[in-house]
Design a binder for these strands. Structure first.
Lengths: 232, 232
DNA sequence: TGCTCATGGTATCGACAGTAACATTGCCAC
DNA sequence: GTGGCAATGTTACTGTCGATACCATGAGCA
């Protein structure tokens, strides 16, 4: 195994277990059994090391996906691509933040390749006449929304305990871009909407019609409607 | 002006002009005419200083907006809120990245307040029965998409030269969340869609029907249709 | 007059990114 | 072989950073 690979894998290991999301070149050198000048000869500077490391992690993860069979329906591939993106972010949060959150590794190849894979799927959709935007613009829309969701899941887990946010935004964006996707993605049924409407309205006007106890109970019942399991 | 304020404004000034997006506590102390122990007594550590600085910049910017009149239509407020968010990100990219890109300033008040303002508007929409999701979930969706767009504009300006991305995603997200928003936001007219379809399809099958010159010319004409100015 | 507590100042620590200068190895032409 | 060359390895260092220990001052108060 080349020195370069040893260093990269040491860096990837340290990065994966770094609470702060950052690593020091010294720690990498020690873990790889290499002196600092060797690292700087191979990667130029710290940013070069991080870019190579992120690309390595990305390749490793994408190894499973790259050979994934194209589905017959490009929309299905678009969905699974989104889910892969989100899962990568949650599996490798530090690498993901370096790539999409900070400008730390701007010249990494991973971001460009992610964009390329996305473009391919969108091109297939466009070739079928199902895309409502130019593929280039659509790719930027999908990529921006997906990175926003992934960073929210990484950086504010207390706000987003589960991954429902990802599927919600995914379907919402896709339905706005692909003409024959489910027209309104995750929309609630009328009852749920009505319950939401009433709960919001009652926060300001409940006092006129109900006692505190009544309002509390009513709110609880409405919440039960909101949170009941979805059909199908 | 209190020492605290002097330090914060010095930090804000340095941050605004920092190419790397980072500042050193030493430079802040020098610019503020203060010793390091003073800074650390006031803010605890660097993260505390950055959080206070980001909150200060945020407040300064929001001073113009806080007194903004509520529009009669909450959907209009939702749109202008999105645009404010995007504009803040582009006006203060370094502060924005600290707040939403890296986890550097997690306990800043600004993020929470942005969420609160968004929640208020969404609650008004819900009270009118126009929201298709619970306000809490809708707020997360809008916030994630908006930060994704803003970071894309900040970190990859070469991919996103203008702010069209922001308005596209904005209308797309809002139309998926608000029941009576324009159903399909920025969609292209049939001709443009058809041109997009053909251009994508022809990249793989042009060789069967056209010579290289013909294909090139055809592609150029189709592009002309795609890029023609939009009506109205 | 003694005491406490907030603030200011000096000097320093340990970790960090990056580098200069030198030593070593392997390899290829002759 | 042998001389030369390029790649690699090693030591030791620079300047900067975040953070802190320690001391000094001064105001308010019993």
């Amino acid at each position: 195994m080349s020195t370069r690979t040893v260093i990269i894998e040491a860096a990837a290991g340290l990065l994966a277990h770094s609470p702060s999301g950052d690593i020091s070149t010294r720690a990498v050198c020690e873990a790889a059994g290499v002196q600092q000048p060797a690292l700087y000869r191979l990667f130029g500077d710290k940013q070069g090391l991080l870019a190579a490391t992120v690309d390595h992690v990305w390749d490793e993860y994408l190894g499973m996906k790259r050979s994934a069979v194209r589905s017959a329906d490009p929309l299905e591939d678009l969905r699974s691509g989104w889910d892969s993106h989100t899962r990568f972010a949650l599996t490798h949060p530090n690498a993901y933040r370096l790539l999409f959150g900070s400008g730390a590794v701007s010249q990494a190849e991973s971001a460009a390749e992610a964009m390329r894979l996305l473009r391919d799927v969108l091109d297939r959709l466009a070739a079928q006449g199902r895309l409502r935007l130019e593929p280039e613009a659509a790719a930027r829309v999908v990529m921006a929304a997906n990175t926003g969701v992934a960073l929210a899941l990484i950086l504010r887990p207390e706000q987003n305990p589960d991954e429902a946010l990802s599927t919600t935004v995914r379907d919402l964006v896709h339905s706005g871009i692909v003409s024959d996707a489910a027209p309104v993605p995750d929309a609630d049924e009328p009852e749920r909407i009505a319950a939401t409407t009433l709960r919001s309205a009652l926060t300001t006007t409940a006092g006129e019609l109900f006692t505190g106890r009544e309002a509390g109970l009513l709110d609880e019942w409405l919440e039960r409607i909101q949170t009941r399991p979805r059909p199908n």
